[in-house]
Amino acid sequence: MQFVTPLLEGLKVNLEILVVSTLLAFLMAFLAGFGRLAKYRVVRGITLVYVEVFRGTSLLVQLFWMYFALPAMHVNVSAMAAAIIALGLNYGAYGSEVVRSCLLAVPKGQTEASIALNMTYPLRMRRIILPQAWRMMLPGFGNLQIELLKGTSLVYLITLADITYKGMILRSANISQQSLIFAWMLVIYFVVAYALVLLIRYFERRAAVGRG
């Protein structure tokens, strides 16, 4: 148990990154999800490039690029900011596919009925399409949330003092107990992941209330 306290100390960094980059990822997912369906070709083009670049390269490469390569362009970002931006933009790109496909999965008849009731585009999105699409998005977002959590473990490689970093420090001081230290790291991650799964299930249940 002596290892758990320092590991949890490091976990705080991961959770901070998790929360902020999740918010960023949500923002990007919706912006790009709607952008992919925009009326204007330019908007569609720009979002497509964003999505394909971030989905087509690797998260760790993006992390390194933000941290090591950006300074060459005289953009200095802290390791923390690089982590949040890379994770947020990366999972935002994946999330945008969830948003886009779920918006498209709402039956066309719903849009037609809204037009027949003379609803404007914003009203129809807000009251009719999004609530239905949101419910379909939750499982996809849930999977991405777990992937994002796991992704936070990579920030160790850009010098952040997260749980992995703490673990490696502990390991060098207690080399004979390294299996135990690694095992604890895995267990802690699993507990957090499981808590997230329960949270997501709660949201899914809530979204399903009243509907057969």
Binding site: G109, Q110, A113, I115, Q132
Partner: peptide, 30 residues
């Protein structure tokens, strides 16, 4: 368009709203 109404072959009710909300929705918001 406000002068035109339509009923569809496949109903197109809003599945996430109960019946009264389905009927009220446009009265309130449109």
């Amino acid at each position: 368009r406000g002068q035109i109404g339509m009923v569809f072959q496949h109903f197109n009710l809003f599945p996430h709203m109960n019946i009264i909300r389905n009927v009220m929705e446009a009265l309130v918001h449109v």
